[in-house]
């Protein structure tokens, strides 16, 4: 599903050059659930950014679903994401001016396709928001917003789902509910799941855990 070969990421600032990632070699199989853990500043989010094709490495090769991401431009990588990749973000990132239902159908709009409202409704029902479909994000709690984000992520039936600290902004009880939904939907859709988390309990729910330390990979 996802393969990296000697991937590095170096960032230049005015004062110095920072090596965020160094010589990352990774192979994630279809259907796996992988947790990337590590202390703050270890390079977890940067790694996820590269694996999802949101950015390109300074060195090395990344393959996603058989596509060499490093040889593709922004538009080509966006096209791959629109077809095969779902995202769940720590701060939900819903569109404030759209209702919950419209937020879920957003990926269809981005692809230029007609919105599959029925699918969106069934996803929202699956996450327990059948009575909140017309509400705007401002009218939803944090947990409810994250559930809308989950429904949105699965709208396109992604092959791979990236979740960046999905429970980072939630209280424990809500977080547990969201995690439960995340794994349930994941199982239903047979998606490969890659998530970044500080939460060890969440990490242990995944089949595989990858530890990052000072830009380098340690498998656990």
């Amino acid at each position: 599903m996802i393969k990296t070969n000697s991937v590095s990421k170096v960032v230049s600032t005015k004062q110095e050059q920072l090596t965020i990632l160094e010589d990352i070699n990774l192979d994630i199989k279809t259907g796996e659930s992988v947790a990337i853990v590590g202390s703050s500043g270890a390079g977890k989010s940067t790694l996820m950014t590269l694996l999802a094709g949101l950015d390109t490495p300074s060195d090395g090769v990344i393959e996603l679903l058989g596509n060499d991401l490093t040889s593709l431009n922004d538009e080509a990588r966006a096209a791959i994401r629109s077809e095969f990749v779902g995202f769940v973000f720590q701060s939900f990132l819903l569109i404030p001016s759209l209702s919950a239902l419209d937020n879920v159908t957003l990926p269809c709009l981005l692809k230029g396709e007609d919105e599959d409202t029925e699918r969106a409704k069934s996803l929202l029902t699956a996450v327990g928001l059948e009575h909140r479909m017309e509400h705007s994000p401002a009218q939803l709690s944090g947990g409810e917003q994250q559930r809308v984000a989950l429904a949105r992520a699965f709208m396109i039936q992604p092959k791979v789902l990236f979740a960046d600290e999905p429970t980072g902004n939630l209280d424990q009880q809500t977080a547990e509910k969201v995690i439960e939904l995340l794994f349930e939907l994941n199982k239903q859709h047979g998606t490969t799941l890659i998530l970044v988390t500080h939460d060890m309990k969440l990490a242990e729910l995944c089949e595989r855990r990858i530890r990052m330390h000072a830009g380098k990979l340690e498998e656990s």
Partner: peptide, 16 residues
């Protein structure tokens, strides 16, 4: 900025 980045992450093209 964040919204545009999010839309791009979901696959929105520059043209879109």
């Amino acid at each position: 900025r964040k919204t545009i980045a999010m839309l791009k992450s979901l696959g929105a093209s520059r043209a879109w």
